[in-house]
């Protein structure tokens, strides 16, 4: 009943994007409208299965008459809106956002990053050579920092966290998109093992008092890994293959199947390299899982590769 009312109440909205008239459903975002027009909008913190956090600001667009730019991922369309997605002002902010991120975070395993950096002519090097990892980063106090000399560019680099057998946390690669926190919390998993802690540049993803994962509320569903856009959260299998230099997505086969463990019927996508399952995902658009799995579906594959089998 609610759904019906929802459908009948929805109207079409006319707006203009880059001079082109567009008509989209009321309630759509500017990002949706851009996609309809085939305009490629860069996104990093946006997740198909999550409410937009709109924090990375790489998708910002210019709205005629607005004082500041607006995030395309979350701003809803309004009748008569005039949107510019490639003005000098937009390009400047996107370029700087990419520079600021790239100069402070290791984007080497963020698939889209290299293309974005090139497209916007970002020059992260001009902010200085990256500062070394800080082992004390997890404990920094809000509202205090050492005065810099400016000779290096401060980074989010901190020692990699390997405290369990299933996945690795390398927060040097974290852009703080909030997706892992949102998926772990009330938007999907309701486990609440992690949160954003600290403030400002020292903000980081953390368990309570930086407890190791096995001592935390983590249930190893791995849904945070699934939404992580940067590889900061990574299957141990992928992490190890990358360390050996043999991780190669081009050689991986993807096989869709149904999880055999229980009666829910979650879809699994098995990523297979050299006849070994190296990663398990679930399709975002699957109506049961919406990309999510539990520990069994996500990690319970050792028996497939077991020698004694």
């Amino acid at each position: 009943m609610g759904e019906m009312q929802h459908l009948t109440a929805r109207r079409m909205v006319d707006l203009e994007i880059d001079g082109e008239p567009v008509r989209v459903l009321e309630g759509s975002t500017i990002l949706d409208a851009c996609r309809g027009l085939g305009i490629d909008t860069p996104t990093l913190c946006y997740g198909e299965t999550l409410r937009p956090a709109n924090v990375c600001r790489v998708c910002v667009v210019e709205l005629e008459g607005a004082r500041v730019l607006a995030p395309a991922c979350s701003r809803k369309v309004e009748p008569g809106m005039k949107v510019r997605t490639d003005s000098e002002r937009v390009r400047h902010s996107r370029k700087l956002v990419l520079e600021l991120l790239s100069s402070s975070v290791d984007l080497s395993t963020t698939p889209a990053a290299a293309g974005y950096l090139e497209r916007y002519g970002a020059e992260p090097e001009r902010h200085g050579p990256p500062a070394p990892a800080d082992p004390g980063r997890d404990r920094r106090r809000a509202g205090h920092h050492e005065e810099p000399d400016g000779q290096t560019a401060a980074t989010a680099a901190s020692p990699i966290k390997i405290d369990n057998e299933l996945y690795v946390r390398d927060y040097s690669k974290c852009i703080l998109c909030y997706k892992c926190v949102d998926v772990c919390g009330e938007q999907h998993q309701n486990t609440f093992a992690i949160a954003v802690a600290g403030r400002g540049f020292d903000a980081r993803i953390s368990t309570e008092y930086v407890a190791p994962l096995p001592e935390s509320a983590c249930v190893y569903c791995g849904n945070c890994i699934a939404v992580c856009p940067t590889g900061a959260l990574m299957f141990t299998s992928e992490h190890e293959l990358r360390a050996e230099g043999v991780w190669d997505e081009a050689r991986q086969e993807r096989t869709d199947t149904i999880c055999p463990y229980c009666g829910v019927g979650c879809n699994l996508t098995l990523h297979v390299q050299d006849n070994r399952i190296v990663k398990v995902t679930s399709p975002d658009d699957h109506d049961i899982t919406r990309g999510n799995l539990c520990v069994k579906g996500r990690f319970g594959v050792q028996h497939v590769n077991a020698r004694g089998r």
Binding site: N54, V55, C56, R57, V58, S93, L96, V97, L100, L101, S103, S104, A142, G143, H144, H145, P148, A154, I175, L176, V196, G198, R199, G200, F201, D202, A203
Partner: peptide, 15 residues
């Protein structure tokens, strides 16, 4: 010190 750290322009820009 006072940036909340949520958005990239302010979190890194102030640094």
């Amino acid at each position: 010190d006072e940036s909340c750290g949520q958005c990239v322009p302010c979190r890194v820009g102030t640094v």
